[in-house]
Amino acid sequence: MRKLLIWLPLALFLIFLGVFASGLISPESKTIPSKLVGKPMPGFALAPAVPGKPGLTSAELANGRPHLVNVFASWCVPCIAEAPQLRQLAEAGVPVYGIAIRDRPEDLARFLARNGDPFRAIGGDPNSSVQIALGSSGVPETFIVDGKGIIRKQHIGAINPEDVPGIMSALGDAR
């Protein structure tokens, strides 16, 4: 027993060493995925974020077709970078809906005029309540929602050109 006890510290140390090494090889991931993937879209009804464009309710998203719901903001720099990809998706016939976080109508109108407007509707979320209800932790994030209103996939960060095929195929799967 005493023999075992003597070697216990070394054994414990080796375990911790393993933890450190594995931490170095695969550091803590920095993204926090939503736990709602695979679950129904939470219910919400957002007022229009810009004049002349409808707002967004969760009921509209369960109309039998898959959609993209893009969580974005005019003050968000990566959102500018993903704008061309969203336009490309919209031109390919994908229904793109927007949720604008903590945004002013005039800022948003300017953003859409400058970067293009792929959105069928944009709901304004002035205090992030829908963003939090979605389990989204930042902008931009994009949710793929199937025809029954179930969230099928969450894309965290800007949609880069190389991400487009993956999103198209996920939309195909959601059909």
Binding site: I32, L36, L134, G135
Partner: peptide
């Protein structure tokens, strides 16, 4: 309610 959305991390 928050854990349901963000997991235990939150």
């Amino acid at each position: 309610w928050l854990i349901e959305r963000y997991g235990d991390w939150v």
